[in-house]
Design a protein around this nucleic acid. Structure first.
Lengths: 149, 149
DNA sequence: CTACCTGCAAAACGTTTGCAAGACG
DNA sequence: CGTCTTGCAAACGTTTTGCAGGTAG
């Protein structure tokens, strides 16, 4: 049993999730390359290892429930990615209309401003905010410059 | 031909959309009760009048394309509602975890602040923002007080 | 050994499409 | 009358579910 497996097993068990090799593989994927994955993508990358689509969905739900990964909906698509420790329930993503790439886009300064803003909103509307999901659509850096030039 | 029909016909034609009674019915729904509708909901409310689900989807897409209504995705659900003239491409919605109700939640003051924030972000990340969709999840006013008390 | 987890296949959704019939101007 | 629009049913992609067999502890 190698180092990576050990590490992944520990994360799962620390969250009260019994280890199985399928769960290990899925979580490893998110750790190895920390980007946004659609369920289908996870399935495509791991089906060679004999992981079924149902297990992918069930595992993503488990990992999300316990806060290891987060679910992001951008338009009609659903993505998952690792939860970053510094993010305080406010997630902002930029989705490029042209190339379809998805970018995270809150540095800690912006996150703080945002957080203050939503605190105010929470009070003024007398509700309890659990999380905020901001999806920005437009042209990303690359596509903007391609179109312009 | 009554007043309501005339009015709806005018809106459609002003946007370059040929009038049909199905389009009229769908748009009337949004005008009569200006709330958030899922495609399915629109279909359920209008199928008695012989409107098919395909027509609902096609019409919603047409109305969205020309800016009469907007599309909002909240979690895995897609909603449509009338576009408000004052909204400047920034849409914020509150979705209650418990009762599932959806609320608009940017008054003009908050919208201005938000707008400034995203202008800054746009510059600092060198991208072009077309629209911003903010989904806030949590407990709404009513459900919060029910749970608490 | 028991409880839980898995893959498969089928079902359940939401959404889109092709097509023949019908409505619009 | 030609064009565009419609309803239907089928197709499609995504997500969920039931179940028999397998795995973990």
């Amino acid at each position: 049993m190698n180092k990576g497996t050990e590490c992944v097993r520990k994360i799962l068990e620390d969250h009260g999730i019994p280890y199985t090799c399928q769960r290990g593989e899925i979580l490893s994927l998110f750790i190895a390359e920390p980007k946004h994955y659609k369920p289908n993508e996870v399935f495509r990358l791991l089906k060679d290892k004999g992981i079924g689509i149902a297990t992918v969905y069930r595992t993503l739900e488990i990992l999300r429930e316990c806060g290891i990964i987060i679910e992001i909906s951008a338009g009609r698509d659903v993505f998952y990615r690792m939860k970053k420790p510094e993010s305080n329930c406010i997630y902002a993503h930029f989705l490029c209309d042209v190339c379809g790439k998805i970018y995270d886009c809150l540095d800690s300064g912006a996150a703080k401003k945002c957080s203050d803003f939503f605190d105010l909103l929470e009070n003024s509307m007398d509700m309890t905010i659990k999380d905020v999901n901001i999806t920005i659509k437009g042209l990303c850096n690359e596509c903007k410059n391609k179109e312009g030039g």
